[in-house]
Design a protein around this nucleic acid. Structure first.
Length: 1035
RNA sequence: GGGCGCUUAGCUCAGCUGGCUAGAGCACUGCCCUUACAUGGCAGGUGUCACAGGUUCGAAUCCUGUAGCGCUCACCA
C-alpha cells in the first residue's frame, strides 16, 4: 500500500472543479425510464430567468439535492429535472427597464425585435443559473434541462389550452381585472401585493337633479367619479324612501344618474351601521357607483343594469378614447391627466364649486403590482379566464388531499373516486390548510397578459353580423375548437382555438378571411403548471424522444418550495396534472422550506441589498460549507435569520456593518463602511461602499473606496466542518496506510474492543436517525446528527481512543476503515465535494469488512450505496459502557482542567472496585483519553499526600501526580462548590420522591431513575464532604 | 379583520406524543501550537424557557388569555 498524503487542509476551490468534471464524465446523474430501481423524481421549481440565483434558491436546491442524492444512493432510479422559467412580466420588465435606461421603449421595436432582446437576456441568465446550480453541486439530470418556452414545453401549453378550451373550461370575459399601468397588462390576484398607504376620505356632494338638495358620497378615489353611473344607498337607510325615484346630476360631467338601492351599501354608524365594520365609521351612506373602475361597483352595476363607463387609458391617465363618450366641456379639462393629477384637480374643482364637504385622513391598504410596485388600477377589460372554480379543477385539488390532513370532512366533495385522491401530503402538515382554504375560496384565473414575452394565446377571432356569420362547427369539424358570443352591439364574435398541429394549415386560412390571432400571451403560471408533464414530453413523448418518461417519473416524489408558492403554483400543478392525466398527482409530497431572512428579520431583497450571493459564499467558504449550513438552518417551525456581514475588500476579513434605518423603517447597512481591522498594513479605517450604498445609489464605488460584498460568518461552521472531516480522514489514512488484508477476500471481522463496538453502534444509530428525519423532511436534525457523529463521536472520542492501538490491530483498522467509509457516504448528500475527494484514497485502502456493515465498493461517492448497518451493530450495552467511560474521562479531565494540568502530564488515578471495572471495560480508553499513567485500587496503598479527591457516580476517586504542590485553599473552594451544587440537586430529587402523587402516578422507570440519581448525588455529597475533612487534616 | 407561525444563553437556533440537573453552534474566559486538524484541543461561566392564569404528582412542552414580531388571505367606502 502506497502512502497516501493529503494537503494539510481542505481547499474547496482547488477540488470542486475536478469533482464536477468527474461527475460529468461519469454521467452519473442521468436517469432514464429503462434504468433499474424504483423511480424517484424531483422537478426543480424552475427559477426565473430574471436574475441569478440567491440564497433562497441555494437553500431549496441544496435540500432537493440532499433528497435526490440519498435516493440515488439507495438504488432508486433518481431523476432531478432542472430548468428555468421565462417569467413573463418579470423578465419583460427588467428588459424594458434596461431599454428605458437607454431612453428607449418597448414600442420602439417590433414585437419580434423586442422578443429577441428578451431572448438575449434569457440566454445570459439561463446559463448563469445553470452554472450556479452546477457550482453548488446540484446533481441535476443536466441533459434534460428545460426552459418553459422550449418546443417541448410549448407543445404541452398548446395542448393544455386547446383541451381546456374544448372542454369549456376557458372563457372570454369582460371583467374588472388588476391592471398594472406600468407594464400595461392584467395580472392575477396573487400578483397583487397589499401595501398600507396614507390616503384620504373625500366627501363629495352630488346635487339632486330636481334641485331639492344633494347627497354626499364618500370616496378614496375621487378621480373615478368621472365614470360614475349611479349613487347607491342602502334600502334600510331612513333617507332612502325620500330619495326613491330621484336622480343625481353628476358634477363636472353633468351626467344624470339614478339613485339605486342595494344592501351592499354600508350605512354610517349614526344611522344604524354596524360599528364593527370599519367602513361604517367613514361611510356617508351614499356610495358612488363606478362599474368600470371598481370590482364591487361592477357587481352592483350588473345587479342594477347600470352602464360601465371607462374613463381611463391603459396607462391610467384620464381618457375619452376608451369608452367615455359624454365628455362635458368642464370634464374636458381633466382628460389626459394622470390619475394622481386628476385626483388633485377634481378635488380642487369640488372645493371651488363648494361641493367638497370634508376630507379625512385614512390609512388603508392598496393593491400594488408585485413587479411594478405602483397601485393597481381596477380596470374593465376583456380577458381570458380558466374556470378553476369548476369542480373538475378546484374540487379535484381538494380531493387530492390526504384525508388525515384535511380540515373537516372530505365526503361532501363532488366527483367520483379517482386515482390520486387522498394522495397528496404536506410537510409540515400545517400547510395543508393553506392549500385547502385557497381552493375553497378560489376565483377564476385570469390567464391573459398584455405582454410580448410568453406563450402567445392560440385563439383567432373575428366579429360578424349575426346574419352572415359562418355556421357553428365550421372549424371544429376540421379539428379546431370554437366559441362564439354576442357583443352588446349585436355582432357575433367568433373564437377559434387551434391545436399546434393545425397552425400550418388553418391559421393561414383563418387569416385569409380576416381572423386575427389574439395579441396576448398566457400567464407564466399556465406553463409552470404543466412543468411536471411538459418536461416529460406530454402529450406526445414520441415526438421528443421521451418514451416512457411520463409514466416513469410522473408523479414525482416531492415538490420542494416556499410558502407563497402553495397558491401560485402547487395548486395549479395539482389541478392541471389531475385534469390531463386522469386524476394523477404531479407529486406525492409537498415540502415547504423556511425563508432565509437577514439578521433583522427582513426579507432579503435587491433594494435593501441585504442578500448574500451564493457565488460569494462558494468562493470564500466552498460549496460544501454553504450546503451544510443551509441544511442546518432548515428548521420546520421558524424562518431563519442570517446576520449579514461585510467582506472587507482590503483585509478579506468579514465584519458586522454599521447600520442605518431608512425612512420606511428598514434596517440596512450604512452606505459607507470603514475597515475595523488593523492588520498593521494601514487598512484600519479605510472606506468602502456597502452593497446597500451601491444598490441605493447613495454611494458610488471608486478605486479608493471599493465596493464591499456581503457575506455571513454563519458559514464558517460549514467550512470548519469540512476541514475537520478532511483532517480526520487524513489521520485515519495515515493509520491505515500499513493495513494489509490477510487475503483477497478476508472474512468479516467482529470487533471486541469497546471503542470499536461503540462507534459502530453510534454509526448505526446515526444512520437510523438520519433516515427518520429525511422521511419527514426534517433537515436540521440531519445536519446535527452528522455533526454530532462525525465531530463529537468519531473525532473527539473514537479517533482519540484508538490512537495507541490502531496501528497494530487489524480488527480495529477494519472498523476504522469501515466507519470512515460509512461517514463519507452519509456525509455525501450534504457535502458532496469533500466526500468525493476523500472517496478515492479511502476506497483504495484494503481491509477486511466488518460484520453487519455492508459497504459495496463504487468508483464514486456519488454512486455509492447508502449504508444499511445491521441491527446487530446497534449494541446498547456498548453504548452504555462507553458512556460510563466518557463520564469518568470527563470527571478526570474536569479535575485536570481546574488545576490546569498540562495535557501531556500523566496522572495517577485511585479508584474503588466499581470504577476500576469501568476502566477495565474501556480497554485502555480511559487511560488514553484522560491522560492516566497508572490506576490503583483506592486503599491499596497509602493515599499520596498530593492526592485530590473528587466524586464520581457515588464513589470517591482520587487523582495524584497532578501538580507539584497542592493549593489547599483552591481545593477547599472547589469542594465547597461541589457540596453546594449537590445539596441543591438532592433537594430537587427528594422533593419529587416525597411527593405521594409522584410516587403513585409517575411511570415506575422514571421513579427508579430518580432514586438512582438521588443515590448518586448523595454519595457524591458524602465523598465531597469526606474529601473536605481530609483536606482539613492536611492543614 | 380571518388564518398560520414565532417569542428558550450576548447572537442564530434545537428541544417529537408533558418526566434525566434545559441543549448545540457562534461569541466569551482560562489553559494548551501534544506528531489529523489553531478553520484545532481540553475545561469553564452564562437562561424566572415573552407575560398572566389554568390542567397535572410534575409544564419550555398541554389549555386559555395578554403583549410583541413575522407570514398569509381578505379588504381600496
Amino acid at each position: 500500500m502506497s502512502e497516501i498524503t493529503l494537503a494539510k487542509s481542505y481547499s474547496p476551490s482547488e477540488h470542486e472543479p475536478s469533482v464536477l468534471a468527474r461527475w460529468s464524465s461519469a454521467n452519473c446523474f442521468h436517469a432514464s425510464p429503462t434504468d433499474s430501481g424504483e423511480p424517484y423524481s424531483i422537478f426543480i421549481p424552475p427559477p426565473n430567468v430574471t436574475a441569478a440565483l440567491h440564497l433562497g434558491h441555494a437553500l431549496n436546491n441544496t435540500l432537493q439535492d440532499v433528497l435526490i442524492r440519498v435516493a440515488r444512493m439507495r438504488g432508486m432510479n433518481a431523476m432531478w429535472m432542472p430548468g428555468t422559467d421565462h417569467a413573463g412580466i418579470a423578465t419583460q420588465s427588467v428588459v424594458e427597464k434596461r431599454l428605458a435606461a437607454q431612453g428607449k421603449r418597448r414600442t420602439d421595436f417590433s414585437r419580434e425585435e423586442f422578443v429577441a432582446k428578451v431572448q438575449e437576456w434569457k440566454d445570459e441568465y439561463e446559463s448563469t443559473i445553470l452554472a450556479q446550480l452546477k457550482e453548488m453541486g446540484a446533481s441535476c439530470d443536466e441533459k434534460r434541462t428545460r426552459f418553459t418556452m422550449d418546443p417541448v414545453c410549448t407543445a404541452a401549453v398548446r395542448e393544455a389550452f386547446f383541451l381546456l378550451f374544448q372542454d369549456g373550461l376557458i372563457e372570454r370575459g369582460k371583467r374588472i381585472v388588476n391592471w398594472d399601468p406600468v407594464s400595461q397588462t392584467a395580472i392575477a390576484d396573487d400578483e397583487v401585493e397589499m401595501e398600507e398607504v396614507d390616503g384620504f376620505f373625500y366627501y363629495l356632494r352630488y346635487p339632486l337633479e330636481d334641485g331639492s338638495g344633494h347627497v354626499t358620497v364618500a370616496t378614496t378615489r375621487p378621480e373615478t367619479m368621472l365614470g360614475d353611473t349611479a349613487v347607491g344607498v342602502n334600502p334600510r337607510d331612513p333617507r332612502a324612501a325620500g330619495l326613491r325615484g330621484k336622480r343625481v346630476r353628476l358634477p363636472i360631467v353633468d351626467r344624470i344618474i339614478p339613485i339605486v338601492e342595494d344592501d351592499y351599501v354600508v350605512m354610517p354608524v349614526a344611522l344604524g351601521g354596524d360599528p364593527a365594520d370599519g367602513k361604517s365609521l367613514f361611510a356617508s351612506g351614499f356610495l358612488k357607483v363606478t362599474p368600470a373602475h371598481d370590482p364591487n361597483d361592477w357587481e352592483l352595476g350588473r345587479r342594477h343594469g347600470l352602464p360601465a363607463i371607462n374613463v381611463m387609458a391603459p396607462d391610467a391617465s384620464m381618457s375619452d378614447r376608451h369608452g367615455w363618450t359624454d365628455v362635458s366641456p368642464a370634464a374636458q379639462a381633466f382628460v389626459g391627466l394622470s390619475r394622481e393629477a386628476a385626483r388633485i384637480a377634481i378635488v380642487e374643482w369640488f372645493k371651488k364649486a363648494g361641493l367638497l364637504e370634508s376630507v379625512k385622513p385614512y390609512r388603508h391598504s392598496v393593491g400594488h403590482g408585485s413587479r411594478s410596485h405602483v397601485p393597481i388600477e381596477p380596470y374593465l377589460s376583456d380577458q381570458w379566464y380558466v374556470r378553476v372554480t369548476d369542480a373538475r379543477l378546484s374540487t379535484s385539488a381538494l380531493r387530492a388531499m390526504d384525508p388525515a390532513q384535511f380540515d373537516g370532512s372530505r365526503s361532501g366533495l363532488a366527483g367520483e373516486a379517482r386515482d390520486g385522491d387522498g394522495g397528496l401530503k404536506f410537510f409540515p402538515t400545517r400547510y395543508a390548510k393553506t392549500f385547502q382554504h385557497w381552493h375553497e375560496g378560489i376565483r377564476d384565473w385570469c390567464i391573459s397578459r398584455q405582454l410580448w414575452w410568453g406563450h402567445r394565446i392560440p385563439v383567432w377571432s373575428k366579429s360578424f353580423d349575426a346574419a352572415t356569420a359562418p355556421a357553428a362547427g365550421t372549424w371544429s369539424a376540421q379539428g379546431a375548437a370554437e366559441m362564439r358570443r354576442t357583443l352588446p352591439d349585436g355582432q357575433l364574435e367568433l373564437f377559434v382555438c387551434l391545436p399546434e398541429s393545425l397552425d400550418a394549415t388553418l391559421a393561414p386560412a383563418l387569416a385569409a378571411i380576416g381572423f386575427v390571432q389574439d395579441a396576448d400571451v398566457l400567464d407564466t403560471w399556465f406553463s409552470s403548471a404543466l412543468w411536471p408533464m411538459s418536461t416529460l414530453g406530454w402529450p406526445n413523448s414520441g415526438r421528443f424522444e421521451m418514451d416512457g418518461m411520463l409514466d416513469t417519473f410522473n408523479p414525482s416524489a416531492v415538490l420542494s418550495t416556499a410558502r407563497e408558492i402553495i397558491t401560485l403554483w402547487v395548486s395549479r400543478m395539482v389541478m392541471f396534472n389531475r385534469y390531463f392525466l386522469n386524476g394523477r398527482l404531479p407529486f406525492r409530497h409537498v415540502f415547504i422550506h423556511c425563508i432565509v431572512q437577514d439578521g433583522f428579520g427582513q426579507k432579503m431583497s435587491k433594494s435593501l441589498a441585504n442578500g448574500v450571493d451564493p457565488r460569494d459564499i462558494i468562493a470564500t467558504h466552498g460549496a460544501d460549507a454553504m450546503r451544510f449550513v443551509l441544511t442546518q438552518m432548515s428548521t420546520a417551525t421558524q424562518d431563519v435569520r442570517l446576520p449579514v456581514d461585510v467582506l472587507c475588500p482590503f483585509t478579506q476579513e468579514s465584519f458586522a456593518p454599521k447600520t442605518i434605518t431608512t425612512d420606511v423603517g428598514h434596517v440596512v447597512a450604512a452606505p459607507v463602511q470603514s475597515c475595523p481591522t488593523d492588520l498593521g498594513r494601514g487598512d484600519l479605517g479605510r472606506k468602502m461602499v456597502s452593497a446597500y450604498g451601491y444598490a441605493s445609489g447613495s454611494a458610488v464605488p471608486t478605486a479608493d473606496m471599493p465596493l464591499a460584498r456581503n457575506t455571513s460568518s454563519r458559514f464558517d461552521a460549514g467550512r470548519n466542518f469540512a476541514t475537520k472531516l478532511w483532517n480526520a480522514s487524513r489521520f485515519a489514512l495515515a493509520q491505515l496506510g500499513t493495513a494489509t488484508p490477510s487475503s483477497d477476500s478476508p472474512p468479516a471481522v467482529v470487533p471486541v474492543a469497546l471503542a470499536d463496538r461503540w462507534i459502530l453502534a453510534r454509526f448505526a444509530r446515526a444512520v437510523d436517525g438520519i433516515n427518520g428525519s429525511l422521511a419527514e423532511y426534517q433537515f436540521n436534525p440531519v445536519a446535527d446528527a452528522l455533526y454530532d457523529f462525525v465531530w463529537r463521536d468519531f473525532c473527539d472520542w473514537y479517533l482519540e481512543a484508538i490512537k495507541p492501538t490502531v496501528k497494530n490491530d487489524p480488527v480495529q483498522q477494519a472498523v476504522l476503515r469501515g466507519v470512515l467509509d460509512g461517514i463519507l457516504r452519509i456525509m455525501h448528500p450534504v457535502m458532496p465535494f469533500v466526500t468525493e475527494v476523500l472517496w478515492t484514497p479511502v476506497s483504495a485502502i484494503a481491509t477486511a469488512p466488518v460484520r453487519g456493515l455492508e459497504l459495496p465498493t463504487s468508483p464514486l461517492a456519488a454512486t455509492s450505496r447508502w449504508p444499511t448497518p445491521d441491527a446487530s451493530l446497534n449494541d446498547a450495552r456498548a453504548i452504555e459502557s462507553f458512556e460510563r467511560v466518557q463520564s469518568l474521562v470527563i470527571a478526570i479531565r474536569n479535575v485536570r482542567g481546574e488545576r490546569q494540568v498540562n495535557d501531556r502530564r500523566k496522572i495517577v488515578l485511585h479508584a474503588p472496585k466499581e470504577v476500576l471495572a469501568i476502566v477495565a471495560e474501556g480497554g485502555g480508553a480511559v487511560e488514553t483519553l484522560a491522560g492516566i499513567d497508572r490506576v490503583e485500587a483506592i486503599g491499596a496503598s497509602p493515599r499520596p499526600a498530593d492526592a485530590v479527591a473528587f466524586p464520581f457516580m457515588g464513589s470517591e476517586l482520587c487523582a495524584s501526580a497532578l501538580v507539584d504542590a497542592v493549593d489547599v485553599g483552591a481545593e477547599r473552594k472547589r469542594l465547597e462548590q461541589t457540596i453546594v451544587d449537590r445539596v441543591r440537586v438532592i433537594g430537587g430529587f427528594e422533593g419529587k420522591l416525597s411527593n405521594a402523587g409522584y410516587l403513585a402516578k409517575a411511570r415506575p422507570e422514571v421513579i427508579e431513575q430518580t432514586r438512582q440519581m438521588l443515590g448518586e448525588a448523595q454519595a457524591d455529597l458524602v465523598a465531597a464532604r469526606r474529601a473536605l475533612d481530609v483536606l482539613s487534616t492536611m492543614v
